[in-house]
Computed example of a mutant assay.
Amino acid sequence: MSDELDLARGHVRRVLDAVDPEDLAMATPCSGWEVGRVLAHLADSADVVTRLLETGELTYTESARGEVSDPVGLARQRLAAMDAALSVAAPDRAAAARLPALVELTVHGWDVGVALDPAHRVPESLAAHVLSHVETVLVGEARGDRFAAPLAVPDDAPASDRLVAFLGRTPPA
């Protein structure tokens, strides 16, 4: 899964590189969430994965940091800390952290990417890989309130569209 994690890192970095300060207030596919808020959440998600690597416990919390003046910089900083923690983590913790990291990077990269460009898609091989995992893990109560109900898309839709629809997001037309 490290190759896929590298793909997810590259995907989110390309998206971060495309964000300009005036983009931070743009709406994302997440109702009520603008680009800056999703980027702050991505930073929080990186913190969650870092804590998992350090403590072995996966607990989702959202920071109460309020308005973030540089959400792109914050996301880059926290993602770098996550990468550093991943590079020195015990093998069992690294293995446990890979899927949450993969899902967060991929999905929030898509959220911001599609806000900037409605034609944005997750790279197909990455989307297919993430989808193959989340379809078996995020079932029933495991979805919690973190994901909306899956949306229907054609079976032959691109993997990117099937992934985001499975996670309750509407794929671009």
Rank of each mutant, 00 (worst) to 15 (best):
L151P: 11
L167W: 02
A157E: 12
L167Q: 03
P154H: 09
L163H: 04
R162A: 13
D145Q: 06
L167F: 06
G168K: 01
F166H: 13
R162L: 13
R146L: 15
G168P: 08
V139H: 05
F166N: 06
P150I: 02
R146A: 13
F166K: 06
A159N: 11
P158G: 11
T170L: 11
L151M: 14
D161M: 06
G168F: 04
A159W: 08
R162Y: 11
D156N: 14
A148R: 01
F166V: 05
A157S: 14
A165F: 12
P154F: 08
D161C: 07
A159T: 10
A157F: 08
A142P: 05
G140Y: 03
S160V: 01
T170R: 12
L151G: 14
G144V: 03
F147P: 04
V139L: 06
A157T: 12
S160L: 00
G140I: 05
P150W: 07
E141D: 14
E141M: 06
P158A: 13
A152H: 12
A142I: 00
R169K: 13
D155H: 09
G168D: 03
A165S: 14
G144M: 01
A157C: 10
V139Y: 02
V164G: 06
D156I: 13
R162I: 11
A165K: 09
R162W: 12
T170P: 00
A149W: 01
R169S: 04
S160K: 03
S160N: 09
S160I: 06
D156E: 13
L163K: 03
A148N: 08
L151H: 11
P158E: 15
V164M: 10
P150E: 05
P158N: 03
A142N: 14
V164F: 03
R169V: 00
T170E: 15
G168S: 10
R162N: 09
P150C: 00
R146T: 00
R162Q: 14
T170D: 13
D145Y: 08
A149T: 08
G140V: 05
S160H: 07
D145P: 01
A152I: 09
P150S: 14
F166R: 06
A149P: 03
A157Y: 08
G144P: 04
F147H: 04
D155P: 09
V153P: 07
A148Q: 09
A149E: 15
F166A: 12
E141R: 08
A159Q: 12
A149Q: 10
V139E: 13
D156Q: 13
P150N: 04
D145A: 05
G168H: 03
T170F: 00
L138Y: 09
D155V: 06
F147T: 07
P150D: 01
R169D: 03
A165C: 13
L163P: 01
G140M: 01
V153H: 06
F166G: 02
V139S: 05
E141G: 15
A142K: 11
D155C: 04
A159M: 10
S160W: 02
A149V: 02
V153A: 09
D156S: 15
G144N: 07
L151S: 08
D161N: 11
L138H: 04
D161Y: 04
G168L: 07
P150H: 11
D156T: 14
A165G: 11
A142H: 13
F147C: 01
